[in-house]
């Protein structure tokens, strides 16, 4: 049986861990109560990365966030990669494991981006099957994250929220709601981000992500937001986040900043802002 109870992060702010902040975090984590790592960065045999992770795991609940499983891929899941994940989760026993509703691997190789999926019944069957395999292999419930999207598939026959709700229903997985992704996708797809939040099964959300994006425009002059994780969270995303926790209640909330990473106080301040909104939300 899957053990859902072992996956519990505090309903408080967390930070995407970067090695340059190691000493600062141990000296004074400020409002940060938990840390998230990218699974693939800790699949080496040893050395400093694993030593730091072991030390951090003694002080903080850890969330393992995979970026390479390619759950939406047309081909079978990579059994070697599942083994690597099982090994990491085995020794670390993290508070949570999450991955993306996306694909990244094909016959050509690993493409290192979270590529989009058409929301169709065949995709639903395939993704649900892959989520089942992951949860069975890892022996735990996982969270699946909504993507940032830049285009739409003509063949899509349901909304993203319908798709994610159905995946969760079929597999028992939880969901990771990235509020910045909601804002980015809604802007790019010309839909209402508030309606997305209102239609999302918030009771299934085990974690929330907040991050920054870049602003661009397409060849027709339409706004095009790019999920960069390289900037502060913008005010409309904070407002959307406040709406989310006001409706769905407090959730573990991560500040994601992966590129042009600022000094620790800047990240701690973003985490504090999330903490203030969490404090106002219903438990």
């Amino acid at each position: 049986m899957l053990d859902a109870t072992q996956s519990r992060l505090p309903d408080a702010p967390g930070i995407g861990y970067k090695p340059q902040h190691y000493a600062a975090i141990l000296a004074d984590p400020g409002p940060v109560r938990w840390l998230e790592i990218h699974a693939e960065n800790y699949m080496g045999e040893g050395g400093r990365p694993l030593a730091q992770l072991r030390a951090l795991a003694e002080r903080f609940p850890i969330s393992v966030h995979g970026v390479g499983l390619s759950i939406g891929g047309e081909g079978p899941l990579d059994p070697d990669h599942l083994d690597r994940l099982a090994r990491l989760l085995g020794w670390l026993n993290p508070a949570s494991f999450s991955e993306h509703l996306a694909w990244s691997t094909h016959d050509v190789g690993f493409l290192n981006d979270l590529l989009p999926l058409p929301y169709t019944e065949p995709t639903l069957v395939r993704v649900a099957d892959h989520v089942d395999q992951v949860q069975t292999r890892l022996g735990r419930r996982m969270l699946l994250e909504n993507p940032s999207t830049y285009l739409a598939f003509d063949e899509s026959e349901m909304s993203e929220t319908e798709f994610l709700r159905e995946i969760a229903r079929r597999t028992g997985c939880g969901l990771l709601l990235d509020v910045n992704n909601v804002f980015v996708s809604a802007t790019n797809q010309k839909t209402d981000p508030r309606a997305y939040i209102d239609g999302f099964p918030l009771e299934l959300v085990g974690e929330i992500h907040l991050g920054g994006h870049d602003e661009d425009a397409d060849e027709h002059g339409q706004p095009l937001l790019i999920d960069s994780h390289g900037a502060p969270v913008v005010d409309p995303v904070w407002a959307l986040y406040a709406r989310t926790v006001d409706r769905g209640g407090r959730r573990p909330t991560l500040i994601e900043w992966d590129n042009d990473v600022p000094d620790w106080p800047v990240l701690a301040a973003e985490a504090a802002r999330a903490g203030a909104l969490l404090a106002e939300a219903p438990a």
Partner: peptide, 29 residues
């Protein structure tokens, strides 16, 4: 084919974002 913007026009530059992400992220690595 089959990839569109919200007005139903071909995705064009929107597809190039994915293209750019792949090349930029692996180049950075």
């Amino acid at each position: 084919p089959g990839l569109s913007d919200p007005e139903g026009r071909p995705a064009g530059k929107r597809f190039d974002i994915y293209r750019n992400n792949v090349v930029t992220s692996l180049t950075a690595a």
